[in-house]
């Protein structure tokens, strides 16, 4: 579903992403790990079409990103680090608005969102202004907004940062279900225990790929017992 060839992004003299090669298949949960500034977010932003790569190629949902960005946009869902919701709109209105961007009618958007709202037990907030909703639920809503149009590829940029363990468990159960239903999920995270849920991970350091593979493979290859140890070994570069 996603393929990059020598993907590179420079900001002036700073190279944020350096010749990154990736191949991510359908139904995969792919984790981007790395310290702050390692290039995770930049890579995700390139793949979403928010940033143009300096060089290299990328395919998303089987489509060339540079030439068919319009079709790519229809096939992806994106939840950014700072969840982008309209605080002065009601939960329902946010859903309808984001669905509408993908040409879903109001009722369709709400119907698509309903199972998630039930799952997160947040239906009671439907007619509340988003600013009145507790932060953890805003984050859940941001996830739902990224999913209502049923995109085959979903990008989640640190979806679980700053949420309580309960919400984090819910997020990961949703992510697993998405993958099980054939969607490709790219997720970046700081939490190494979450990395264990990924089918495969990419550990980034200074814009380059420090390691790529399934958590089990990587741990075995480097002779460490946990992702935490692996991360400290690789991401710090020592």
């Amino acid at each position: 579903m996603i393929r990059t060839v020598d993907l590179t992004k420079r900001f002036g003299s700073f190279t944020a992403v350096d010749k990154l090669n990736l191949e991510i298949g359908r139904g995969e949960i792919f984790g981007f790990l790395g310290a702050n500034g390692a290039g995770k977010t930049t890579t995700i932003r390139i793949l979403c079409g928010l940033t143009r790569p300096t060089s290299g190629r990328a395919e998303v949902a089987g489509l060339d990103l540079a030439r068919r960005s319009e079709q790519v946009k229809r096939s992806i869902g994106y939840m950014s680090q700072r969840f982008a919701l309209y605080e002065d709109l009601k939960l329902r209105e946010n859903l309808v608005f984001y669905g509408g961007l993908y040409r879903l009618g109001p009722q369709t958007s709400l119907n698509k969102a309903k199972p998630y709202l039930e799952r997160f037990a947040m239906e009671r907030y439907t007619d509340e202004l988003v600013r009145e909703i507790p932060p953890g639920y805003k984050q859940r809503l941001a996830l739902i907004c990224a999913l209502t149009h049923d995109p085959p590829v979903v990008f989640l940029d640190e979806p679980t940062s700053g949420v309580d363990p309960q919400a984090r468990r819910e997020f990961w159960s949703v992510i697993s279900d998405l993958a099980a239903s054939g969607k490709t999920v790219i997720v970046s995270t700081h939490y190494m225990e979450e990395a264990e849920y990924c089918h495969r991970v990419l550990i980034m350091r200074d814009g380059i790929s420090a390691a790529q593979g399934s958590p089990a493979e990587l741990k075995a290859a480097h002779g460490v017992g946990s992702m935490q140890e692996l991360f400290l070994l690789l991401a710090s570069g020592e």
């Binding site: 319009e70 946009k73 982008a84 961007l101 993908y102």
Partner: peptide
């Protein structure tokens, strides 16, 4: 400021 512009830009709008 809210970051919602990015959300618009990743959509087909």
């Amino acid at each position: 400021e809210l970051g919602t512009l990015e959300q618009l830009l990743v959509s087909p709008v």
